[in-house]
Design a protein around this nucleic acid. Sequence first.
DNA 1: TATAGTTAGTTGACAATGTCAACTATTCAA
DNA 2: TTGAATAGTTGACATTGTCAACTAACTATA
Lengths: 146, 146
Amino acid sequence: MSIHFGSTKDISTFIREITWHFGSRGLKGECCGDLSQPEYRALCMASEKSKGAMRMVAKSLGFTMSGASRVIDRLEKMGYAKRKRIPEDGRVCCIEVTPSGQTLIKNLSQEYDNRIDKIMSKIDPAMQEIIGTALRSFVKMIKQED
Amino acid sequence: MSIHFGSTKDISTFIREITWHFGSRGLKGECCGDLSQPEYRALCMASEKSKGAMRMVAKSLGFTMSGASRVIDRLEKMGYAKRKRIPEDGRVCCIEVTPSGQTLIKNLSQEYDNRIDKIMSKIDPAMQEIIGTALRSFVKMIKQED
DNA sequence: TATAGTTAGTTGACAATGTCAACTATTCAA
DNA sequence: TTGAATAGTTGACATTGTCAACTAACTATA
């Protein structure tokens, strides 16, 4: 209990608000276009790490292998990703993002940025700066949560 | 495009991280104990506004009336809430949070606070202050998003 | 070099959750 | 007093993720 500012309760409330607002159930359920949040995340995952094997996808999503497999099934069916066997290990299968998938990521990302930008633009520039700094620091810490 | 700090892209990324991390799929899927996020939110809703009719629940969740009804079904089955007809209007049904529900809210809220507190306590006090201010300002703006 | 044990991933059966459309019951308005 | 509107519920259904059982491939050991 070493918090001296507005109090932990405030922060909790703020985080809940943000989580809900930008979550899959937020504003018009609009978080990732046609994709669910897990699908979007998986696609990004696969796009960043070319070595994005199923296992990594599952881990990143917090899903079972089974669940991850299903997510990739859907992305494949939609034409955004493709499974590729690798010669090094016949069991492993890497996820390749198709050009159509790349485009989708770019567009969704842009839409999201626009949304954030629209919100931020109504805030006083000094506070914008503060928000950037604050979020960076906060996110850094949550990544260390065990 | 009036953003001059780290850039909108950073903020977007931070928000996505927070949304995911604290969302229903985050750390061990632990967001609201036995309750799903919608269930928790509905229960809070009903607890805050004593006039928490189904309609309000549905609106607050972004669900159809049908969906809201199902959520309350579950809360009722778990013994956390109870439907109450009101005399003013025979159609309306208000959601009453049971004592057991009140306790649950209190406990979940406490757990959440502890989690946040644990994160915040690792951050330099000055930055804690900044985060509080920043989040307050940010959340205020997202509530105005149309 | 067999062979037993891991590891990667898939799939069938299932449970949970929310939508749509159709329904009941009540209230409001003319 | 009747017809339209409003509140809410429910059946049928689609989606999504889990568990358990499975296949296939790799690895270490005898």
